[in-house]
Amino acid sequence: MRVSPEHQDPETIQRILHQARTVAIVGLSPNELRASNFVGFYADRHGYEVIPVNPREDEIMGFKSYPSLADIPGTVDVVDVFRDPGAAVEVALQAVAINARALWLQFGVISDEAAEIAKAGGLDVVMDRCFKIEHARYIGRMHWLGFNTRVITGRRPGHLL
C-alpha cells in the first residue's frame, strides 16, 4: 500500500523529532523483543519522556502505563502508534482530543482516515515510518549499520547522541 509522501516528509519528521519532549506510545509492549519495546527503550535512552499507553499493564519499562490517551495527566507531544490499522482512527480522535502535536503511525499502521482526522485537528502526521529509525537517520547512528540515511552534507556535525 502506497503512503502519501506528505506523511513521510523529511522536514516534518525532523521538526517533530527536535521539538518533542513527551512521547505516548500506544500499544507499548513489555516484551523486550517487540518493536514497540525497541522504540520505547530507544526514545527513553535519547532523552524523551516515554508514556506507555496499554490497558493491560500498570507499568512498562518502569513507567506508569495508562489505559488510554485521555487518562494521561500532562501534555503529550507525539502519539506513537503500534496498533493494527483498524484501531488508528480511534487513536487519532483521542490524539486530537488531548491536543497532541503529532500523530506518528509506525510501520504497517496505514490509515488515511486516521491521518485526515489528525491533520484536520491541527496535528503533524507521519505514517508507515519508525520513530527510532528516523531519529537514528538524522541525529543518531543509523549510518553505522550501513543503512541509507539519504543525508548528504559537507558540514561537520556536532557530537552525535
Partner: peptide, 13 residues
C-alpha cells in the same frame, strides 16, 4: 540534542 538545519532533503544527483 543539537538543532541541525531543518532543510528539506534535496534529491541529489
Amino acid at each position: 540534542m543539537q538543532n541541525p538545519d531543518e532543510k528539506p532533503l534535496r534529491s541529489f544527483g
